[in-house]
Design a protein around this nucleic acid. Structure first.
Lengths: 178, 178
DNA sequence: GTAATATATAACCAGATTTATATGTACTCA
DNA sequence: TGAGTACATATAAATCTGGTTATATATTAC
């Protein structure tokens, strides 16, 4: 329900191919709150075109395969503007590791600690990835930049919350009577 | 991939019907980290039985419709124990509201603030729901209880993180030049 | 010659959600 | 008394969304 609008949001800035959307937009700026794989993006672009929210044209290239470039239409802009005001309910939290933890009483404490440490390592990597993104701001569009920074900031805060919780959880489980 | 294991985890404590799983387990203790709707649970129970991880039998009732009660098998316990040690990668963060915020530069600041306030209200309700759950601990199984509390605690911390971030974001957007 | 990069798409599968349907009891409101 | 509604219980069908795998072509780099 939101992927088409993420795509419209990007096309609002400039026309793009599916490949560009994936490599330049999804994998770079917005991966931390919405990800999509290539076939998904291409399929969605077809649907967007069917609905008249974008048009596409082939751009001939001689050094590389031809590209199909999508441009947003007025109808697409209108749809996006409408959607921008719609309330989006917070997504359900669904995390397999928490099922494990919830039912981990049958494990020895050191096994539970191992689970927690695996998660801690993953979250620390995530923190490092956020730190690497930090630098990529151009400074030319302060309003856009402030909002982009906000979404990044949330991702970082959540990651820190996980790390602190995992550290506390490890200490707690170590102190648990078996 | 995890729903069957959540079900096995519950059946490990006692035999249950699909309806019980939904109303007693999913909607109560574990809704804050894994949710499922009724048809999904019934379908999954069929698959679990096909794989030999549980058996079912009809329990005749006279005041209400008959119930199909599922019991975990040794193979089911073995599968669950095996799965308990498997690393579960953190799920991708996918939140429609963050797409809105990221692309909200075209909105007036007061419109952005309205979006943020909608999310704030939703997260405050979530906090209230967590507070209501707090009390439901029996105290008979300290190990199980400690782990259940841990999962609840994470949910609460994440909710607080959102609330603090939303409050900061509102202040920031209000101060933004248009 | 092999790998990597750029580009596009088809086919399929898995998981989650919505909607509908069925049946029996109990309760409520007019 | 009868009509509607809620609760307990189970399942089917359809749909949507996301993800995996494979395939195809062209160029450049190693």
């Amino acid at each position: 329900m939101s992927l088409p609008h993420a795509i419209l949001g990007i096309l609002g800035y400039m026309p793009m191919t599916g490949y560009d959307l994936k490599t330049q937009a999804f994998d770079k700026s917005i991966a931390h709150f919405w990800s999509a794989v290539l076939p998904q993006i291409y399929r969605e672009l077809e649907r967007i075109e069917e609905k008249g929210w974008a048009t596409s044209s082939i751009e001939i290239q001689h050094d590389r395969p031809n590209r199909r470039v999508y441009s947003i239409t007025d109808a697409g802009r209108a749809e996006f503007a409408r959607w921008l005001h719609e309330f989006q309910p917070p997504p359900a939290h669904r995390e397999a590791f928490l099922i494990q933890l919830f039912f981990a009483a049958q494990l020895r404490s050191d096994e539970i600690v191992a689970l927690l440490e695996g998660q801690l390592a993953a979250r620390q990597e995530q923190r490092a990835r956020f730190a690497a993104l930090e630098s990529a701001f151009d400074g030319d569009h302060p309003r856009e930049e402030a909002l982009a920074r906000l979404t990044l900031d949330l991702g970082e805060r959540i990651t820190e919350t996980y790390i602190a919780w995992l550290e506390d959880a490890i200490a707690l489980v170590k102190a648990l009577p078996s």
